[in-house]
């Protein structure tokens, strides 16, 4: 009996370990794919792997927030890729304190972009916010790249 329990536990742990490794590798592949989609003139700097639930009863969509430092005289590229299984469509916005600087979706004009260049003229801390349209649940990857002048 003891041997059986030991056997099952061992197999279970091994399966979990392998599953974790596979998941990590899959995630890295997706990040790399998204970074390639940012363009040949862009050098990968950071990624934002986002998985959010659907909006709750208060209808406020969950948001991913990450602050990051951007530097003067550098052109950055923000790009967003939705994962295949994602229900919602991701929107990436960048804020300088309370002011929105850019968005991959402008509902008023209906314009959408999967990547946007940002010519930074003020060194400082900015905020990247990623959410999903209509508060749907979803998974996406945001990429920050350096664009060569």
């Amino acid at each position: 009996m003891k041997a059986k329990i030991l056997k099952i536990s061992g197999l279970l742990f091994l399966a979990m370990f392998l599953l974790n490794n596979v998941k990590a590798q899959e995630e890295q592949d997706l990040v790399q794919k998204c970074s390639v989609a940012a363009g040949a003139d862009a050098t990968y700097l950071k990624d934002f792997v986002v998985k959010l639930d659907a909006a709750g009863t208060d209808n406020r969509p969950p948001m991913y927030r990450q602050s990051l430092a951007l530097r003067k005289n550098v052109t950055y590229r923000f790009s967003i890729c939705n994962m295949e299984e994602s229900e919602g469509e991701a929107v990436l916005r960048v804020y300088d304190q309370a002011n929105m600087i850019l968005s991959t979706w402008y509902p008023d004009s209906g314009k959408e972009f999967d990547k946007i260049n940002f010519k930074c003229m003020k060194s400082g801390v900015y905020m990247v916010v990623i959410s999903f349209k209509e508060g749907k649940k979803g998974e996406a990857i945001g990429i920050l790249s350096y664009v060569s002048n």
């Binding site: 003067k72 300088d96 600087i101 850019l102 314009k111 972009f113 990547k115 946007i116 260049n117 940002f118 010519k119 930074c120 003229m121 003020k122 060194s123 400082g124």
Partner: peptide
């Protein structure tokens, strides 16, 4: 305020007008 400019290839370029002077 930042100035958004749509480039020829359809990509949006946002140029920040607020500047830091070092």
């Amino acid at each position: 305020d930042p100035e958004p400019v749509e480039q020829e290839d359809g990509m949006l370029m946002v140029v920040q007008q607020e500047t830091s002077i070092i």
